[in-house]
Simulated scan of single mutants.
Amino acid sequence: MNKDFYNLLNSDIHPSIMMELVSVKKQDLNTNFNALVNIELSGVKKSYYIPVIIEKNESISINGSIKLNICDFNLDPPTKALGLIVVDEEIEIILQLEVKEQIN
């Protein structure tokens, strides 16, 4: 299945998925924020807002997830066994970022 997914993403031409954190804006008085991210998948770049939760302990944790439709990236879900097995168009990306403050 991994091989099929790599083929779907054209990993021989585009070996990585890129996610760029553009900005983070506070939503309410709690720990809820909206992160603007650019996601590049198979050479196609799209911008998304991801609801995230930010917690500060020894480090800063940024956690969230987003469901994407692979068709938005010009990818067609593969079928197997004469169409009996179909890959879902929707994938979920889970964001878990740990940031530590460094004082120079």
Results as ranks from 00 to 15, higher is better:
I13S: 15
E89I: 00
G43E: 11
N30H: 14
I13W: 07
N32H: 10
E55C: 04
K46V: 09
L75N: 01
T31I: 01
S59M: 04
S61M: 09
E20P: 03
V37S: 04
I39S: 00
V37A: 06
F33H: 14
S16E: 12
I53G: 07
S42M: 07
Y48P: 09
K26D: 05
N32R: 08
L8R: 11
N30K: 15
E20V: 14
G43M: 10
P15I: 00
K46R: 15
N104D: 13
S61V: 02
I91W: 06
S61F: 07
Y49S: 10
Y49I: 04
V87Y: 06
I62S: 05
I60S: 13
D76Q: 04
E20H: 13
Y49G: 02
L8Y: 10
K3S: 15
I94D: 12
H14V: 01
L68C: 12
P78L: 04
Y6H: 14
I94Y: 05
N2Q: 10
G64A: 07
P51S: 06
D72P: 07
V99Y: 08
D72H: 11
P78E: 04
K3L: 14
K100E: 13
P15K: 01
N57L: 12
A81M: 15
Y49H: 08
C71D: 00
G83P: 01
Q27R: 09
L21V: 12
K45H: 02
D12M: 03
D12F: 10
P78A: 04
L95S: 14
F5R: 00
I50H: 07
E98S: 08
G83T: 01
S16V: 09
I39D: 00
N7T: 08
L41W: 05
P78V: 04
N7R: 10
N74F: 05
F73S: 01
S16P: 00
E90I: 15
